[in-house]
Design a protein around this nucleic acid. Structure first.
Lengths: 343, 343
DNA sequence: TTGAAAGCGCTAACAA
DNA sequence: TTGTTAGCGCTTTCAA
């Protein structure tokens, strides 16, 4: 199990030097070899089954051709689909650029070396961080040092490069308000302190209520994590104590749990309670009833993060440092907005 | 952005040679240094913020401390939760062993270099392949060459190391039969030719029917991919043409789609049709009604694959080459087995 | 117990 | 246009 073929052997086989092999196989710009020489080298490489040793190449060139994906709340991978989508599209994007993807899930992000080791060991050329935590002390340093990093989410750091969706909360609440709802509950992530996305959403929720001249009622806010289970539990509590006419869920997975709790209680969606989610995961179209939600374009976020990161790696400043993707209301049946909606 | 600290500098700072630094920091067995020397080296390393260069280490040692995860049907990542779970637990397991995880999704596995490049470039020390395809021509070669590989799924290769779940189909069908069903439909993956898991399941389905002295009816088999959408479409077709009293779905995500189609048709689950899934994804407990399914222990599969791979990397033969995990029936409400079941 | 030195396989600056 | 050669930073054998 050893690919004992070195560029030296290819060079000998082709009757040229290692430099020539390196230049030809790497297609170094600005160096012209006769087609005949090129062919000899290509054939020799092919014939011998030559594959450049990655470590040697990296050591010599200083480039790893590898991206890191840091997942700050790894357990979300188990319960929610958002991160899988980001992973998928980032993987595709990386491949298109000839890069590989190193996935790093993080338990305790406050601990130094959580993932900075990747950077300092020069194992990656750039980093995408999903849902960065505000109590992460290493990340700001890395950003300030100019290491290529793109966040999916935000640290509210002036120098950060990031991808975020905007308008999801506003659109969800506006939709509910437009349908006449006045007692709108909110089921979001806890604890929100360290997770920028969640506190954003809560703030946005208050603002949206305000815009609609609706009072904010603390009792109508419940917390879960990203899972259906937490949505179920939180919704159960909410139904026991209060009687909202609508519920805005922090993500679709939570909404699935809420739907289950509502159904179990013998209530009807949307007749008794309207439900809105966030993300538009593939399953959202197949809940009972189909879930009205706000699409956050997870795949697109992953792709954009990748493209932005490649700009950074090539030392090209991206046109926009902080991309905001407008979220998109997807009306299905869980709010009763219309009986003629797409699945 | 450069960690210009080399082992040379640490050596100078500590007043020793680079060899000593290497031996002490790597804690090379069988080499005893005075505690005093060790302390000096540790302190120097700490003080200078020394992080060994990964490429240099890899080049010199021949070890990458990196695992590859090959996802043969990358699009599943978008629609189903199984692979996310494997990824999660494999990532955890890798971390515990001080390894990192390189994720490689593959579009066309028949094309050489799909992921074998990782191996030949010596970028990884071992490989986990999820759902290997039977038409993959590279994988058997790698296995025969003795490269450390663990499959989640199977290639039916005598030399393979693999993790599989068994008994899921049998248990699902037996459960339905025990409830008196005789017209059991099956909604599985298409095309099954190249996906061992699916053809297994179909074969198992026929066998299970046989054991129950039930006829196999080709019309009661429908195909989808791994998505809820495909389950919805296939179920709709099934309901139009035939009237099964029970449906066994290839995975829970498909079952979610089936549930939606049944509901849309105005039928009741489990009264009119019983539904069983496979996997026990977290959401299965929160469908309407809660889904009876067969747990395939995705997290455990990922963990076991990782542990097995580490044995292989250390050149230790695992006790069992082909691990079979017994799937576990989880009775909820979608089959009407009992009104007193856990969520 | 510690150090010197020889690679690991490649890239890239410099020569020719 | 092509070859020579000096590293890249580390591990590891061998000698001291």
């Amino acid at each position: 199990m050893k690919s004992r073929v070195t560029s030296q052997q290819v060079a000998e086989h082709a009757g040229v030097s290692r430099t020539t092999v390196s230049f030809i196989l790497n297609n170094v710009p600005g160096v012209k070899f006769p087609q005949e020489t090129k062919d000899r080298v290509f054939q020799a490489a092919q014939h011998l089954g030559y594959v450049p040793d990655d470590a040697a190449r990296t050591l010599a060139s200083g480039q790893t051709q590898t991206l890191g994906l840091v997942i700050c709340h790894a357990e979300h991978l188990k319960v929610d689909a958002f991160i899988s989508h980001v992973l998928y599209s980032l993987n595709e994007t990386s491949r298109q650029h000839g890069f590989r993807l190193l996935t790093e899930s993080v338990e305790d992000v406050t601990q130094p070396d959580a993932y900075t080791g990747l950077v300092h060991a020069k194992k990656i050329d750039g980093l995408v961080v999903v849902n960065p935590r505000s109590d992460d002390t290493q990340l700001p340093k890395l950003i300030e040092q100019g290491f290529p990093i793109v966040l999916i989410g935000s640290l509210r750091h002036p120098q950060e490069y990031s991808i975020n969706h905007v308008g999801s909360t506003r659109k969800a609440v506006e939709h509910l308000v437009s349908l006449g709802h006045e007692r709108i509950a909110h089921l979001t992530f806890a604890p929100p302190e360290h997770y920028t996305g969640a506190s954003n959403r809560l703030t946005g929720f208050r603002k949206a209520l305000e815009s609609a001249h609706l009072p904010f009622d603390d009792d109508l806010v419940a917390y879960g994590n990203y899972s259906a289970e937490s949505g179920y539990a939180a919704m159960k509590g909410l139904l026991k104590r209060h009687k909202p006419t609508a519920i805005f869920c922090g993500n679709d997975t939570i909404a699935v749990g809420a739907l289950a709790a509502i159904h179990e209680k013998g209530l009807q969606v949307p007749q008794d309670i309207a439900v809105v989610g966030v993300d538009d995961i593939p399953m959202a179209a197949f809940t009972i009833p189909p879930l009205t939600t706000v699409k956050t374009h997870a795949l697109e976020q992953g792709r954009l993060a990748g493209e932005m990161l490649f700009s950074l790696i090539r030392s090209q400043a991206p046109q926009v440092a902080q991309v905001r993707l407008e979220a998109e209301l997807v009306v299905r049946k869980s709010c009763g907005a219309s009986l003629l909606v797409k699945r």
